[in-house]
């Protein structure tokens, strides 16, 4: 088991290395640099030379890459080109906790909603409940995320005033847990929607597979009560594949946070990334793609390890 984990971790290292090359490479083909945003007749191009030199924008590409990777290994993503004098690390640390919080809450939400629905759909296959849930999960898959968000803001926040229109906390008010939760509700619901829909479908089919298997039939034949069979045997075996699915859904989950953060003005790395892309703030763009991809790699690593722990059939 331990050797398996170590092997998986070792495999992740070249992966991360490849990610840095791709992140860096994409940026290199980009025309324009942050000085495009400094159009002002009172600023002349020749006066921006000093700025470009200061940030090493005139170095050869491989020098830029080596400098960047070298610093990154030491945990330093360099300085922002736009927010001069501010380290990328600082910008990311100010945002990452918000994104992680949002993702954690919506993951929990997604799991707690989709597991019972998936189970009910599978155990009561072709019932009215199954059809209803199926209908709504397809609806959830096919509806653009931002659309749900905008509609919720319009009706629940602007019209009814039940929820704040965005942000993480009320301005000019002292910190309160309830206030933070209040701000979290809508964004996490929207972020969870697409995943709930997808997860429900997976859990349903995974459970259906298990329910058809011999050992469940045997258990039933032995006279176990339906409920006990479902929860004790089928659940365990039916949910294991979901761990992997979850790992696979992680990239789109993180990507989805860009949209949700933009809708709700949620100050996370998704918003930071979006602004940085428009401002050509390359160090920030590269840092976030690397961090987000690393999160995916780590997520998948965890999923694999969890899978190994939960699935007794796998041997090492």
């Amino acid at each position: 088991m331990i050797t398996y984990i170590v092997r998986r971790i070792m495999m992740a290292i070249p992966l991360l290395f490849g990610i840095t090359i791709l992140s860096f490479g994409i940026i290199q083909i980009a025309p324009g640099d942050p000085t495009a945003l400094m159009i002002d007749p009172m600023i002349r191009d020749k006066d921006l030379v000093a700025y470009k030199e200061l940030y090493g924008l005139n170095d050869p590409i491989y020098v830029q890459y080596l400098k960047w990777v070298g610093n990154m290994i030491q945990g330093n993503f360099g300085d922002s080109l736009i927010r001069q004098g501010v380290a990328v690390n600082e910008l990311i640390m100010a945002r990452l906790p918000n994104t992680l919080l949002l993702m954690l809450v919506s993951t929990i939400l997604a799991i707690f909603i989709s597991i019972p629905i998936g189970i009910i759909s599978a155990t009561k296959q072709n019932s009215l409940a199954d059809y209803t849930f199926t209908f709504f999960s397809f609806l959830g898959i096919a509806t653009p995320n931002f659309w749900i968000g905008l509609v919720l803001i319009m009706f629940l926040s602007v019209h009814l005033g039940w929820f704040p229109t965005g942000g993480v906390a009320t301005l000019n008010e002292p910190f309160s847990i309830w206030d933070r939760i209040h701000h979290l509700i809508l964004p996490s619901i929207v972020l969870a929607t697409a995943d709930v829909a997808g997860l429900t479908r997976y859990i349903r089919s995974s459970m259906l597979d298990v329910l058809k298997q011999d050992f469940i039939r045997t258990a039933r034949a032995k006279g176990f009560k339906q409920k006990k069979v479902v929860y004790k045997h089928a659940l365990r075996n039916g949910l294991i594949p979901v761990i992997t699915i979850f790992g696979l859904m992680l990239p789109s989950f993180i990507g989805g946070s860009v949209v949700v953060e933009k809708i709700f003005g949620w100050p996370g790395i998704g918003m930071l990334f979006f602004d940085a892309a428009f401002q050509r703030d390359y160090p920030v763009i590269m840092a976030i793609t690397v961090i987000a991809s690393a999160l995916v790699v780590i997520g998948n690593l965890l999923a694999d390890i969890l899978y190994a722990i939960f699935d007794p059939r796998i041997e090492y």
Binding site: L15, L22, I26, A30, P31, P251, G255, V296
Partner: peptide, 22 residues
Amino acid sequence: MRFVDVIISFPSLFLLITLVTI
């Protein structure tokens, strides 16, 4: 397959935003 892994690990929307703004 390692190459595939690298691309799969990128949250696709991030890639799309970067490339489409570029």
